[in-house]
């Protein structure tokens, strides 16, 4: 009996890994292609476009691309992007969780109205609001600084707030009630009960917030008026000109490099998504 079970389990494991890897190949293909292409010498980029393996690998595109424009190298773009992304991410995750608790747990007048307003901010395309927003920020003298990009994140963002609301609503109410009976006020309940229980949601939010602010280009395009303030995504888009010469090798190389921090953050944070949360101890 035991033998049969074990071999069955082994078979399942093999089946599982095979399936996951086969689908996985389709998933990782773009990264491999991008990485491979970034190593191809100029002659191979178009002639051997569909191959992911360079015949004569070269690092020249990395060196060329890193130089950036004039005397402004990619190290400056990295620094700018890192400042924006880290601050935005931290600010967004904590402010959104805080706000979400209010929407998820407390009853107050006009709650539904404000919640609808919040969702509406997602439904009007940002592109169309660009000009009024630009005029507004220019009246505040925020142009040519990171402020228009960073400051709004301190006020939460609908996507994250709504997401965390849904997670908080999944947390049994008995937990906060127990805390309140123990004499916690609502702020203490939020910090000591809800926030820890929402770690998976907050981690997820952090992964997205980082990735989105890392790749965001419309706001930097409009508000950063000096190459020294440019972000990576902006710099990458300045490489190409449809009617002129474009160094595609450099674009591939720098695109590939720009993915690494996003990946690193993902790998660093996702390990917090591994353990299921037991409410057992808290209930006690």
């Amino acid at each position: 009996m035991v033998e049969v079970n074990r071999s069955k389990r082994t078979r399942n494991t093999i089946l599982y890994h095979t399936l996951v890897i086969i689908i996985g190949i389709f998933m990782i293909y773009p990264i491999l292609w991008l990485g491979g292409s970034s190593l191809k010498p100029d002659g191979e980029i178009w002639t051997r476009m569909s191959s992911i393996f360079p015949l004569k690998p070269t690092l020249e595109h990395y060196l060329d691309g890193w130089k950036g424009f004039g005397n402004i190298s990619f190290s400056i773009f990295y620094k700018n992007t890192a400042i924006i992304s880290v601050v935005t991410t931290l600010a967004l995750v904590f402010s959104s969780a805080f706000i979400a608790y209010g929407f998820a747990r407390l009853h107050f007048p006009l709650k539904k109205f404000w919640f609808a307003c919040m969702l509406a901010t997602l439904m009007l395309p940002l592109q169309i609001q660009l000009i009024p927003q630009y005029i507004m920020f220019s009246k505040l003298h925020w142009i040519n600084s990171f402020k228009p990009i960073i400051v709004p994140s301190f006020f939460g963002r609908a996507f994250y707030i709504f997401m965390i609301v849904q997670f908080i609503r999944g947390v049994p109410r008995s937990l906060d009630e127990a805390a309140e009976i123990d004499g916690c006020n609502r702020f203490k309940t939020f910090f000591s009960i809800i926030m820890p229980l929402c770690t998976p949601a907050m981690i997820t939010a952090a992964i997205f917030a980082f990735y989105w602010s890392w790749g965001e280009f419309l706001m930097p395009l409009i508000y950063l008026n000096k190459p020294k303030l440019y972000t990576i995504s902006l710099a990458l888009r300045s490489f190409s000109d449809p009617s002129g010469q474009t160094d595609w090798g450099a674009i591939y190389a720098m695109s590939f490099l720009s993915l690494l921090p996003v990946f690193a953050i993902f790998i660093a944070l996702q390990k917090y998504l591994i353990e299921g949360i037991s409410t057992e101890g808290l209930k006690g």
Partner: peptide, 19 residues
């Protein structure tokens, strides 16, 4: 509760009305 509720959503409210 209403006061607390508004305190919690205050950051969003400021951002929404202001920006």
């Amino acid at each position: 509760e209403s006061i607390d509720g508004y305190l919690f959503i205050l950051p969003w409210l400021i951002g929404f009305l202001g920006l």
